Amino acid sequence: MSVKPRWNVQDIPDLSGRLALVTGANSGLGLASVVALARKGARVLMACRHPDRAARGRDAALAQVPEAAERLEIVSLDLTSLDSVRTCARTILERFDRLDILMNNAGIMAIPRGLTADGFEIQFGTNHLGHFALTGLLLPLLLQTPASRVVTVTSAAAEFGVIDFDDLMGEKRYRRWSAYSQSKLANLLFAVELQRRLSLSGYSTISLAAHPGIAATNLQRASMAAEASKFQIASLKGFLSIAQTADQGALPQLYAATDPQAEPGGFYGPRGFLQMKGSPAQIPLRLNRRGRDEATRRRLWEVSEALIGFRYPLADS
Rank of each mutant, 00 (worst) to 15 (best):
H50P: 08
V44K: 05
A60Y: 07
L21C: 08
R58D: 05
R39M: 12
A25V: 11
K40M: 02
A36K: 04
A61T: 05
A60G: 09
P51A: 12
R58C: 10
G30L: 06
A25T: 04
L37K: 02
K40W: 00
A55R: 14
M46D: 12
G41K: 13
S33N: 07
A36V: 06
A63S: 09
A61F: 00
L37F: 01
D59G: 00
S33F: 05
A32V: 14
L37I: 02
A38G: 15
A25P: 04
L37P: 01
L29I: 13
V34W: 02
L31I: 11
R43F: 08
G28F: 01
G30M: 04
A38Y: 11
G24N: 07
C48M: 13
A38S: 13
A25L: 10
S33Y: 04
G57Y: 08
M46G: 11
G41F: 07
G30F: 01
S27K: 10
R58Y: 03
A36G: 01
A42W: 00
G30W: 00
G57F: 03
A63D: 12
A54K: 12
S27Y: 05
L45I: 10
A55N: 08
V34K: 03
A47M: 14
A54F: 11
T23V: 04
L37H: 00
A61W: 00
V35W: 08
H50Q: 15
L37Y: 00
A61D: 01
M46T: 15
L31K: 06
R58E: 12
G28E: 07
G28M: 04
V22P: 10
N26C: 02
R53M: 11
T23G: 10
L31F: 06
A63Q: 12
L19E: 09
